[in-house]
Structure formats: structure tokens, C-alpha cells
Computed example of a mutant assay.
Amino acid sequence: MTKGWEAALAEASSPSWTRRVRAGRDLAPFAEVPEAAEALLELLLDAEDTAVTRQTAEALTRAGTLAAVRLIALAVAEADDNRADWLQTGVHDALVDSDGGLDVAAVCGELARHPEEAVRRGAADLSAWTDGNGL
């Protein structure tokens, strides 16, 4: 497993957007690991390709862990309006395809008490995306 983990970290900084998308998917289950979290946050805010943002947000939403959703919340807090739209699209894609198995709103509720203001702010926005949208 370590070998794939190291390969995914290397792919996260690739000039190829498809490799960065793959890295986001492969690293999402490791969101609690500091090195992976740092790379995932960069992928969520990818300045070169919105597909990387969207697919990484989707993978982290599917992971559904506190660490994964925390990273999305941080990205939402830092994102400009355009990037936030793509983050929202990735979250939406994961929730629509989840058959109700993901409870991002519950995780956002936990993050509402997070010590970092940016996480609380991003979690509030993320929670609003899931409220009233049929998700």
C-alpha cells in the first residue's frame, strides 16, 4: 500500500491534469495523513484545471470522513467564487450518486465546532449546499 501512496503523492504535482485527478482519487482515503492532506488541499484548489478540483472534491465527499470533509471545508473557505462552484459540483456529484449513504451534513455539524474559523466557515457553506437541494 505504501508504494501506491508514494506514487499518488508524486502524481499530485504532475503537470498532467489527468494524473492530478487520479492522485486526488487515490489520496482521498488518506485524508487524515498530513502529507496527503496537504496535497489534497492543493488539488482542491488546483489553479490550472477545474476538473482536478471537481474530481478531488467528489472523491473526498465519497470518503465521507471527518478529515476528508474538513479538507473540503478548508478549500471552500479559501476558494474564489468560480473554484467554489466546482467544489460544490464535485460534492453534489458524490451525493447524488451515493444512494443516501453519505451524511456530509452530519460531518459538517461536527466541524461547526472546529477550533479553526476557516473550517467552521467552510463547513457552514458546505452544509448549506446539502440543505434544501434534494441531496
Rank of each mutant, 00 (worst) to 15 (best):
R54K: 13
L27T: 10
V69N: 03
A105K: 06
G4F: 03
L9F: 00
V76G: 04
N82T: 05
C108V: 08
T50E: 00
L66I: 11
A77T: 06
A57G: 13
A57C: 13
N82L: 11
S16K: 02
W86G: 08
V33H: 10
T53D: 06
P15Y: 14
A37M: 14
T53R: 09
A105C: 11
L102H: 05
L45P: 03
A31C: 14
F30V: 05
D93H: 15
V119C: 12
D99R: 00
C108D: 04
A94E: 11
K3M: 12
V33N: 05
N82I: 01
E32R: 15
K3G: 11
L45H: 02
E38G: 09
A36S: 08
A77W: 06
V96Q: 03
W86F: 13
A73Q: 11
D131M: 04
R19G: 04
F30K: 08
E110A: 09
D131P: 00
A51M: 14
T61W: 05
E116C: 02
A67Q: 05
T65G: 08
E117G: 02
T56H: 00
L111P: 10
H114C: 14
L44W: 08
R83W: 09
P15K: 00
V96K: 02
E78R: 12
H114F: 13
S98W: 15
G90M: 14
N133H: 01
G100R: 07
A37R: 15
T130G: 04
D26G: 01
Q55A: 06
W17E: 01
A39N: 03
P34L: 13
L111F: 08
V21Y: 03
T130F: 05
W86T: 13
E116P: 13
E116K: 14
D103T: 08
R19P: 07
L45W: 07
R121D: 04
N82P: 10
S13I: 02
R54G: 07
E78C: 07
T61D: 10
L74V: 03
A94V: 14
A94N: 15
L41H: 09
L66C: 09
L40E: 08
L126Y: 11
T89I: 10
A28F: 15
H92A: 12
D80Y: 00
P29C: 08
G101Q: 03
V69Y: 12
R25H: 03
G100Q: 04
T89F: 15
T50Q: 08
V96L: 05
P15V: 00
A128I: 06
L95E: 07
